[in-house]
């Protein structure tokens, strides 16, 4: 039983990290970033390349730091190349879906070309096991469980207290009024993308330690993150985080009792049920 809970919490934490970045970008810019999963994957490769003896061999700590910095830069660059040129144009939402999907396919294949198809392994940030409520838990799992709430709490604090965080929310609520306060919308968009990419990157480094690294490793988390964002309610960060843990738990329970192959079916059934009762998601607002 506690094994199921731990597994649900780990998935929930990872989904929360992934989905909140997606949700932030959606809230501020009104677009979906389909290259979000690729950001996760590239951060894992960056960490591996810097830390592994097959790469720079600079050690895990350097790898993690490099991957986080890389994520921020990659997020900013992605915004600049794939998103910014289409903002403010008619049907920007659709154009950005196309450009980010195209970018994702390109980058995934680029990584495949450069690093090859063999799965890579990243050392765990914390190693060993811990006994918890009668279950043996990997320390890395435990780290994920504590890291996600801490990071997301930090993001939430920035959004309510910092000048830039308030500006992100202002843009999401009333773009013209935000501009009239002297807010540089472009800069805030860039920062939002960078923060979102860092959250995805940290999820990527954690997943890399728990499972393995491959060019397609971001696809599944991206799909889950979309389910979470819709489930939790578009534009609500709290809803997204709550949704991530609910989905993580449902998945863990269903994998245990029903089996891993039927879990996606269960997941979508839950999603459909919730959207039938609450069309805007758990905490979404009517548009």
């Amino acid at each position: 039983m506690s094994a199921i809970i731990v597994s649900g919490l780990v998935s929930g934490s990872l989904y929360a990290l992934m989905a909140s970045g997606l949700s932030l970008v959606w809230g501020a810019l009104g677009v979906f970033n389909f290259a979000h999963g690729v950001l996760l994957m590239m951060a894992a490769y960056a960490a591996w390349w810097v830390s592994s003896s097959s790469g720079l061999g600079a050690g895990l700590a350097a790898g993690v730091v490099a991957a986080v910095v890389f994520s921020a830069l990659a997020g900013a660059l992605l915004y600049w190349v794939l998103v910014r040129p289409w903002l403010g144009k008619p049907d920007a939402e659709l154009s950005v879906i196309m450009t980010t999907i195209a970018g994702a396919i390109f980058l995934e294949n680029l990584v495949l070309e450069v690093f090859g198809g063999h799965y890579k392994e990243l050392d765990q940030v914390v190693t060993g096991t811990v006994m918890l409520a009668g279950t043996t838990v990997q320390a890395q799992d435990l780290m994920a469980i504590f890291l996600a709430p801490a990071l997301l709490g930090g993001v939430a604090a920035l959004l309510t207290r910092s000048r830039t965080g308030l500006a992100v929310r202002a843009i999401a609520q009333n773009r013209d009024a935000a501009r009239l306060l002297g807010i540089n919308i472009e800069r805030i968009y860039l920062v939002t993308f960078a923060v979102s990419a860092v959250l995805a990157g940290i999820a990527g480094i954690t997943i890399a330690g728990l499972f393995s690294i491959s060019p397609a490793m971001g696809n599944d988390p991206l799909l889950r993150a979309f389910v979470v964002v819709v489930f939790g309610g578009l534009g609500s960060l709290i809803g997204t985080i709550a949704g991530a843990y609910v989905i993580g738990m449902v998945e863990a329970v269903s994998s245990y009792y029903i089996g891993i192959y039927w879990t996606p079916v269960v997941l979508f059934l839950v999603l459909i049920a919730v959207l039938t009762v609450r069309p805007t998601g758990l905490m979404g607002r009517a548009p």
Partner: peptide, 30 residues
């Protein structure tokens, strides 16, 4: 805005999901 010209737009609910204090803080963004 930095030159000191401030435009208070029509339609008075500028930031519905912010507290009054947050919205006022934002007013001092420049």
């Amino acid at each position: 805005v930095e030159c000191g010209i401030i435009h208070v737009p029509q339609g008075s609910t500028l930031f519905p999901r912010m507290t009054v204090l947050e919205a006022l803080t934002l007013g001092a963004y420049s």
